[in-house]
């Protein structure tokens, strides 16, 4: 574990306390990951992450997004999880919900909780639907300015510097994942700049991923959402997908989304 602190003041106490604090928070983070690694996929099946799997922190910030990686998520809808917890975590992370003049259906949502009911059997279930981070994303195809883009590591996001707010991508997205900001916003979070006239959607918490953290909804999901590298066969998400499978929503469209579901 390298701690990169270059304190020009040579203030030993500050450095010590800072590194201790950091070490403890890293330990928490590591133990948190280990706890999240032992996952129940279906009742009675436990899966464990192996020690040689690449972890988030292995990817250096200096290198930027790499196409060797493809970030993906696996949502286990069989778990009794209140998906609104994930939505709340998402809203908090990205500072959503600060619209004051928009109607409810206009307000930005990165994650929608969709209720599905089989009328024949009466069976109902709910699942969180966010940007599916498609490999061949229609929103990227149709964007006239190159604002809607796919990062090298598979994350689909909007470059607001280039977005002109035409909303073509909203029309193109089969998952209804994108929202448009209709009004002037204030009090944005510093990690998620957002403002009037731009389309936005789930960005898989790029700022957190680049900092070696998991997306906010994954953290809040009590293990019901697994995040990892789909290109790495040793990652827990790949192992679970290989063993138990997972479904993509509207797989018939052949967009190859990076978000997989179980129990749908």
């Amino acid at each position: 574990m390298t701690i990169n602190i270059d304190n020009k003041n040579n203030d030993e106490t500050t450095t010590d306390s800072a590194s201790k604090e950091m070490e403890s928070s890293r330990r928490n983070f590591i133990f948190g990951s280990v706890a999240a690694a032992g996952l129940t996929v279906a009742p009675g099946i436990m899966l464990y992450q192996t020690a040689n799997a690449r972890s988030l922190s292995d990817f250096s910030l200096k290198e930027g997004a790499s196409s060797k990686v493809r970030w993906g998520m696996l949502v286990d809808t069989t778990k009794e999880v209140d998906w609104n917890k994930c939505v709340d975590a998402c809203n908090k992370e990205h500072g959503l919900g600060n619209e004051t003049n928009s109607r409810d259906e206009q307000k930005t949502q990165y994650i929608r909780v969709v209720e599905v009911k089989n009328k024949g059997t009466g069976y109902s279930m709910s699942l969180p639907v966010m940007c599916q981070h498609c490999e061949s994303a229609p929103c990227v195809d149709v964007c006239p300015t190159g604002a809607s883009m796919k990062r090298a590591d598979g994350i689909v996001l909007v470059d607001r510097h280039r977005c002109i707010g035409c909303r073509y991508c909203m029309m193109a997205c089969p998952y209804k994942a994108r929202s448009f900001v209709h009004e002037v916003l204030t009090d944005q979070t510093e990690n998620t700049p957002r403002g009037k006239g731009c389309v936005e959607s789930c960005n898989m918490c790029v700022n957190r991923i680049d900092n070696g953290q998991e997306p906010a909804c994954v953290e809040a999901s009590d293990g019901a959402i697994i995040f990892g590298d789909l290109n790495d066969s040793e990652s827990s998400i790949s192992k679970i997908l290989a063993k138990h499978g997972g479904k993509q929503i509207r797989a018939d469209l052949k967009l190859n989304p990076g978000v997989f579901y179980q129990g749908i």
Partner: peptide, 22 residues
């Protein structure tokens, strides 16, 4: 706290202070 004297990486900062009350 004298600003600008600590050369932490973004990752370090995120680990030290993951929660910021705004």
């Amino acid at each position: 706290v004298v600003p600008g004297t600590y050369n932490l990486t973004i990752k370090d900062m995120a680990n030290i202070a993951p929660e910021v009350n705004s």
